[in-house]
């Protein structure tokens, strides 16, 4: 789809109308719901999982990220400003040398990328990184 300026404006005003109706940033709460579903509402610790992402992404279509959580059995990545918050889940098998992985993701707008690690003892850890997505003059 060629996103014209007009379509973007239409999209923007639609989103505003929606958020003024609900009074909530709709996408962020969708992420919270998705995380609660994963963790069963368990407390989220911090410090054992790291997420590496650029501070500014030159193009939101391809944003390199890396997640790492020593002692994790799985890491799930979310993006709180995307229409669908789930991004990917990495499950580590017996021959994984580290509990880390890199990939490239799509970010619709400036937002937080969140990693939730499920640890071997069943507890959960959280880390997040804010990525600014630029709307280019010509490139964006």
């Amino acid at each position: 789809m060629e996103l014209t300026r007009r379509k973007l404006l239409a999209l923007g005003s639609g989103a505003m109308a929606l958020s003024s109706l609900t009074g909530l940033p709709a996408f962020a709460s969708m992420m919270d719901d998705a995380i609660a579903k994963l963790t069963g509402g368990a407390d989220l610790g911090e410090g054992a999982v790291t997420i590496t992402a650029p501070e500014i992404a030159e193009n939101g279509n391809t944003v390199p990220i890396e997640v790492s959580a020593p002692g994790a059995v799985a890491i799930t990545v979310y993006a709180d400003g995307n229409p669908v918050p789930n991004v990917a889940t990495f499950k580590f098998g017996p021959l994984a040398a580290s509990r880390s992985a890199s990939t490239r993701i799509r970010l619709a707008t400036t937002q937080n990328v969140v990693a939730i690690a499920q640890m071997e003892d069943g507890s959960f850890q959280k880390a997040s990184a804010n990525v600014k997505v630029t709307i280019g003059g010509c490139g964006g």
Binding site: N86, A88, T89, A101, R106, L107
Partner: peptide, 9 residues
């Protein structure tokens, strides 16, 4: 490794 991909990849 076993990865679940969503449309955000």
């Amino acid at each position: 490794i076993d990865v679940t991909l969503e449309p955000a990849i």
